[in-house]
């Protein structure tokens, strides 16, 4: 759905995005992680043809951007760096104006489509109020509604839960998951690890303009080949396992070996009480921190 090759953007002497090769597959919920200022938004803008790349290329839905923007962008819904609307007009009027200013989505179906998306994002009750009376969260939902208006194949969402309360965040998450189930590919850029971890199937991590990691969440979180054991008898366990314990922290032992069942049998057979035992998995946070703390990242100023 999105393929970039060696995408680079230079502003004067500053490299904002440096050789990023994204690969977003159909059916993904792709989490694009990065701290504020890491070049996420610039990348998203290049993908959508708002910012022109210094070098490298972008293919969106299989077509080269920004040349093919007219053909492919109607099939993409986007929320870029916060919502925006005309304050003096109602939410409905805003959606109608936006829909009528481009192709894709007929005029006859417009009214029903608008009703449907307003319902979807939970704004049906306030659709006729002027946008200047909306809260930040309502504006965020209106932005989402605009992105969904033509039932896009690909949703590009930049920080979609910004400004929402926990209840709202959950609603949006469920909305995205629902859309995903119906076949929409989602590209979600965020600085919130938890959000990405809960939602995404694939993750790309951007650090100071460079893509330092890109993999499926499942493989990032696959077992490390070690087992975590919680036991009150940790000293006995330590002796018993003789050298296989890599690390101990109170009652928590990290043991080399990827077979928890065999380990459990061994410990219990020797009378060591096991409170908890399982394969070690790294959290996304650990993965990201490991990837971004790499010392040779002297990007930014060249």
């Amino acid at each position: 759905m999105i393929t970039t090759t060696q995408l680079t953007k230079r502003y004067g002497g500053i490299l904002a995005v440096d050789g990023v090769s994204l690969d977003v597959q159909p059916g993904d919920i792709y989490g694009f992680l990065g701290a504020n200022g890491s070049g996420k938004t610039t990348t998203v803008r290049m993908v959508l043809g708002l910012v022109l790349a210094t070098s490298g290329s972008v293919d969106l839905l299989g077509r080269r951007m920004p040349r093919a923007g007219r053909a492919v962008l109607p099939r993409v819904g986007a929320l870029v760096e916060g919502p925006a609307a005309y304050g003096h007009l109602s939410g409905r009027a805003n959606l109608a104006l936006l829909d009528s200013s481009g192709t894709g989505g007929t005029r006859r179906s417009r009214s029903t489509r608008i009703d449907a998306v307003l319902e979807q994002v939970g704004l049906a009750a306030v659709g006729r109020r002027p946008v200047k009376a909306y809260s930040l969260g309502m504006r965020q939902r209106l932005g989402l509604a605009a992105a969904l208006l033509r039932q896009p194949e690909l949703l590009v969402l930049d920080e979609p839960t910004n400004g929402l309360d926990p209840q709202g965040i959950r609603e949006i998450r469920e909305l995205i998951q629902g859309l995903h189930r119906r076949g929409t590919t989602v590209f979600l850029s965020s600085h919130l690890l938890a959000e990405v971890e809960q939602l995404c199937t694939r993750v790309g991590v951007l650090d100071r303009g460079r893509l330092v990691l890109q993999d499926s969440l499942a493989s990032l979180q696959r077992p490390t080949g070690r087992t975590v054991v919680h036991t009150p008898d940790h000293e006995r366990a330590h002796v018993l396992l003789d050298g296989r314990v890599e690390h101990r922290e109170g009652e928590r032992l990290i043991v080399r070996g990827a077979d928890p069942a065999a380990l459990n049998a061994l410990l219990v057979a020797d009378g060591v009480r096991v409170r908890e035992l399982g394969p070690e998995r790294r959290t996304l946070e650990q993965v990201v921190l490991a990837a971004t703390e790499h010392p040779d990242h002297q990007v930014g100023v060249s």
Binding site: L48, A78, V80, Y86, L98, S101, G102, A146
Partner: peptide, 14 residues
């Protein structure tokens, strides 16, 4: 300034 320009352009509007 209002930010609506980016949404118009990704709508897309030439």
């Amino acid at each position: 300034q209002q930010g609506t320009l980016r949404y118009l352009l990704v709508r897309p509007v030439s």
